[in-house]
């Protein structure tokens, strides 16, 4: 009973290409940490102090663990926990694994809809939809949708917002 989520889960998942993007990010992060470690190993001689040897081992272990988590685990986990949904009335998202956050915004209160594409996102044909309201807290971000889906969603939201806008902000 207590494990029941407080509110319903949105139905749709992000694009499967998002996994590829997150894996790429994980690989990039691993390479960056690996290079840092290599620089440390090459530039700091072992006899520089008693902590150098343990630091090398710790660094190696860190890079290995990070690689497994960031490449094999995190992308799939993220794909599973990010969910979203757009109906005629609302935009609804769920994010977060340990701390979960559900955000619901009625389309009648939407002020602007942004579609942004980062460099990596362009490579994977993805886009992020950000829905802004009058409240600084009430911003909904749907990351990594297929470009066509993102454009369609943004179009739908702005059209519905036009139809259902009410005066209150």
């Amino acid at each position: 009973m207590s494990d029941q989520p407080p509110v319903r889960e949105p139905v749709w998942s992000l694009s499967r290409s998002a996994i590829g993007l997150w894996v790429t990010q994980g690989v990039a992060g691993t390479v960056a940490y690996g290079l840092l470690l290599a620089a440390f190993v090459l530039l700091v001689p072992v006899d520089a102090g008693p902590v150098v040897q343990p630091l090398r081992w710790a660094g190696g272990a860190f890079v290995a663990v990070y690689a497994v988590l960031a490449i094999a685990v995190r992308p799939r986990l993220r794909y599973r926990v990010h969910r979203w949904e757009v109906t005629g009335e609302v935009v609804y998202t769920l994010t977060g694994w340990l701390t979960r956050t559900w955000t619901l915004v009625p389309i009648s209160r939407v002020q602007t809809v942004d579609v942004t594409r980062g460099v990596l996102q362009q490579v994977f044909g993805l886009a992020t939809v950000a829905v802004l309201t009058a409240s600084s807290q009430g911003t909904v971000r749907i990351p990594h949708l297929d470009l066509g889906v993102a454009r369609h969603v943004a179009d739908h939201i702005s059209r519905r917002a036009e139809q259902t806008r009410d005066e209150a902000t």
Binding site: L98, T99, T101, W102, V105, A168
Partner: peptide, 12 residues
């Protein structure tokens, strides 16, 4: 009418 959205948060 003030509400422009809801955010539900749940930690572990």
């Amino acid at each position: 009418r003030a509400v422009v959205g809801w955010q539900v948060r749940q930690t572990v």
